[in-house]
């Protein structure tokens, strides 16, 4: 094998190999976008229950990704879940913005939704979002649903079995049991 031909082929090989790496980082991954996104600011949001929210989950406003969940922790005193949000610098939100944890689709990933308020003062780096709504827990919803159904059955057949708890007699009560579960 001629030395020059080997050099040429090795050159081609290394060049397209490196091009593939660049393609993976830029086109498949988010190296380009992260460079602009790395400049951003931090917000803190506290939730009674953060559900299945994971670090690096998206933060969306009106369906547009405006940041990422940076980290998740527990406040040892208040026993609240603390989510640190990294918001891209070109997005600004009013001080009375509401942060809520939503699920994409029925079984999808959880993300943080920001609903902008009307305040003229904007949130700054290291501020805390005051108004939050916790994650909807599917298990709780289902058990409430079952519970209310179980209550409805004896109510539809009066006199068969006496209702055990008079306070739960009203079928409208269950949603109120989970404060903050719904917007």
């Amino acid at each position: 094998m001629n030395r020059k031909i080997i050099d040429l082929w090795v050159g081609i090989f290394v060049a397209i190999g490196l091009a593939a790496l660049v393609f993976l980082a830029l086109k498949v991954g988010n190296l380009l976008t992260t460079s602009e996104q790395r400049t951003g600011y931090q917000l803190e949001a506290r939730f009674d229950n953060i559900g299945n929210l994971k670090p690096r989950a998206p933060v969306k406003s009106a369906g547009v990704v405006v940041g990422r969940v940076e980290s998740i922790g527990l406040d040892d005193k208040t026993y609240e879940g603390v989510a640190r949000l990294h918001i891209y610098s070109h997005h600004q939100f009013p001080r009375d913005t509401i942060a809520a944890i939503f699920t994409s689709g029925l079984l999808g990933e959880q993300f943080v939704g920001l609903e902008a308020g009307g305040d003229s003062v904007m949130l700054k780096d290291e501020d805390r979002i005051r108004k939050t709504q916790s994650a909807v827990q599917l298990e709780k919803l289902i058990s409430q649903f079952m519970f209310s159904k179980a209550q409805e059955t004896p109510a539809s057949a009066p006199g068969a079995v006496p209702t055990p708890a008079p306070s739960a007699a009203s079928p409208a009560a269950p949603p109120a049991v989970t404060p903050g579960a719904k917007p």
Partner: peptide, 11 residues
């Protein structure tokens, strides 16, 4: 794809 693939974490 770009939104889900992180260049550091995945690539």
């Amino acid at each position: 794809m770009q939104a889900a693939v992180d260049w550091r974490y995945d690539v």
